[in-house]
Design a binder for these strands. Structure first.
Lengths: 159, 159
DNA sequence: ATTACCTTTGAGAAAAATTCTCAATTAGAT
DNA sequence: ATCTAATTGAGAATTTTTCTCAAAGGTAAT
């Protein structure tokens, strides 16, 4: 599946003011192979991974890379808005590429695949809610859980 | 603030088929002072707390209560639907009383207060989304972050 | 009320997740 | 090519969560 920054395994926007490099530099962050490697892993899979999973995968590319660096890379990538934390039902949290623009995602409880959708149901009720509660709404976190087409089949076969 | 089960500090529904006790028993769980103490703490404050905070508070009532028991009590209470996990922006998670019925909550980033609202914006787009994504939607997690009236004032005073 | 059963608890160990420290390395600016 | 400051690796340290097991306690039946 394609994302904002990659076409298959070939990264686009390598240069120019919209490159990832520039994105890092704007925040005074360095564009290191470690950070790019973590980003690539998430981009090449439209699903979320645990930190440990990412570490295992990244070591195939950068064998010396430590776990702490994975944590640090993820922190930076979340900061930049390239990656999002995915809250799992058991309270743990994984990581996935951030959807483009303001989108939300639905997570398959069968295979951990993540699919984005543009519809934001909050926007439409935001004003009404502010009036009702007295809160100013700053941000929101929405995540749907369900089963993708494949995993729906899988279950019915086994029953 | 009042909740489903308490009026101030006096618990209601002490007896009968709708009591908390019954709720525990239906699932083969015992209604222990430890579990009730954790529930009370969350009920008496319409805000979320970390496990450690809950432990500190609960020890004032049950000095011998261990941290592991707090974890176990929270697990049981979440299971029963009396308590919900609150995902914080930094990835940690706290706990708060569950809203009545299907509701969502808005969390104040200033004082951690939690306020519920009945409007569920997911219901209305659920069908459309299923069609678009191919996913069957099983559940959803929605949480808003903002500032309550008090905390809005507090900030403007200091500027 | 007493008994018997089975869950729950406390305490601490153990495991898992995350952060920190610091010297060595390296990306990026000049 | 050189300099500077951010980043990394390695492992220790911290924090969070789970596990173990004997003792205690709630629940249902008597």
């Amino acid at each position: 599946m394609e994302s904002r920054w990659s076409k298959g395994k070939i990264r686009v926007f390598e240069h120019g003011p919209r490159s990832i490099k520039t994105l890092f530099h704007k925040r005074g962050l360095k564009c290191t192979p470690q950070r790019l490697a973590v980003l690539s892993i998430l981009e090449e899979n439209s699903r979320h991974f645990s930190v440990t999973e990412i570490h295992k995968k990244v070591k195939k590319v950068l064998p010396g890379m430590g776990l702490a660096t994975v944590y640090r890379a993820l922190e930076a990538l979340v900061d930049l808005g390239l990656v999002v934390r995915v809250h799992l039902e058991d309270g743990c949290h994984n990581y996935a590429v951030a959807p483009i623009g303001h989108q939300h995602s639905i997570v398959c409880v069968g295979c951990n695949r993540v699919m984005d959708f543009a519809e934001c149901p909050i926007r439409s009720i935001s004003r009404k809610l502010s009036r009702q509660t007295g809160f100013t709404i700053q941000k929101h976190f929405l995540q749907l859980y369900g089963k993708c087409r494949t995993c729906q089949l899988y279950v019915s076969e086994r029953r």
